Computed example of a mutant assay.
Amino acid sequence: MSQRDNEPRSPASAAHRPSLWLTVLSLIAFVVLMALGVWQVERRAWKLALIDRVEQRVHAPAQPLPSRTSWPTISAANDEYRHVDVSGRFLHDRETLVQAVTEEGPGYWVLTPLQRDDGTTVLINRGFVPSERRDPSTRQGGNPDGRVVVAGLLRVTEPKGGFLRDNVPQHNRWYSRDVAAIAAARDLQNVAPFFIDADAGSQSAGGPIGGLTVIRFPNNHLIYALTWFALAFMLAGRLFVTFRGGLFRRQRFVHEPAGGPDASARRTGSDAGTIVEPT
């Protein structure tokens, strides 16, 4: 047996060598973090395309309301915020007030059924009124009679209620613009499965304030992507440092005679003549 075989392994090398399971879990975590970053990049591309489509719909000239035969196929992805116009007569005695908070302050959206010549009905969000004008008698002058033409943005129904607040039709408390529930509560027939947010040009003097539709799509995907990628590269850097200090760390063995000039300073035992120097 040679003297090299009798030499003990460096405790520093063993301390820096990671376990197999820790290595595997770290590699899995790295892959997951990179996948999350790529996913956020893809989500950002999708969101930018969505914003572009909505901008085109909002600023396009108003088009006639989709035909009744196409109503079952209308969806948020393909139709929401489409600029449309519709004509008919308001049924002011069946309006519904939905709680709202706008740039004008807290109050209500006024949803009024518009009866069309073909017998169908479309809910029109005529706009906002403050709480002191909740009573219809305070705005009778702003309720037009006869035939009207309304232009605005097509919106999909908002079923069930608002955030943590359910609609209570029996008590006439509404927190979202749920078309089906409002139609049932107001005994409306042949109602379109969407509603129209009237624009500012469709409002009448003394009536609700129109044109307050908020179009906002949060787009933080780039920040999320950079965060995931940063975490992945930090983990990769930690793995590199760990492996470089352990598994990939070479050692140079230097043997000095026991009687050498530095023997008294280096002597720690029977193997005092052998030192380990990492390179």
Rank of each mutant, 00 (worst) to 15 (best):
N6A: 15
L97Q: 12
E256I: 00
W174K: 14
A185N: 11
E277T: 09
V241G: 09
M34K: 11
T274Y: 09
L212I: 02
N78R: 13
R134S: 12
N220P: 15
N78H: 13
A265Q: 15
I196Q: 08
V54R: 09
D262G: 01
I28S: 08
E104G: 10
A258V: 00
V129G: 03
G107F: 09
T96Y: 02
E132W: 00
K47H: 08
R17G: 06
S67A: 15
Y81D: 09
S264L: 08
V54G: 05
L91T: 03
Y224W: 11
V129T: 03
L22A: 08
R82I: 06
G211M: 02
Q189E: 15
R94W: 05
D79V: 02
L27Q: 00
Y81R: 02
A183G: 12
Q140E: 13
G162C: 07
V150T: 05
A29G: 08
P169M: 05
P130E: 07
L27A: 09
D52E: 11
A29Q: 02
P159R: 06
T112R: 05
L239N: 05
G162H: 09
I74K: 03
V191H: 10
L222M: 15
Q99F: 01
R250D: 14
P11R: 07
A29F: 01
V149C: 00
S176T: 04
S2V: 03
Q56F: 06
D199T: 05
G161A: 06
S176G: 05
R133I: 01
D79C: 06
H83F: 11
S67P: 07
D199K: 03
A180K: 12
H92L: 04
F90R: 02
D199Y: 07
R82C: 07
K160E: 13
G237R: 04
R173Q: 14
R134I: 00
H221K: 07
P72L: 05
P61H: 12
N125R: 06
T213P: 03
S204E: 11
R4A: 00
Q40K: 08
A49N: 04
L247H: 07
V148M: 10
R139W: 09
A200R: 13
K47T: 14
P208G: 01
G105M: 10
T69S: 10
T274K: 04
N172D: 15
V54T: 12
N125Q: 08
G141L: 12
D135I: 01
A263E: 07
G146R: 03
V86H: 08
V101W: 01
G201E: 01
T268N: 11
F90T: 04
V156I: 13
L226V: 12
P169N: 09
A183M: 12
V24T: 04
E132T: 00
Q203V: 04
W109I: 02
G146I: 02
S75A: 02
P130A: 12
Q63R: 15
V110S: 06
I124C: 04
A200H: 09
H171L: 08
T120A: 02
V110F: 10
A151E: 13
S87L: 04
G206I: 10
L111N: 05
H16K: 13
P278F: 11
S204P: 01
P208V: 02
R57K: 15
R173C: 00
L48C: 02
A151Q: 14
F243E: 02
F195K: 06
I28R: 01
T242A: 15
W21P: 05
L36Y: 14
P64A: 14
Q170R: 14
Y224A: 13
V110I: 08
H255K: 10
T279G: 05
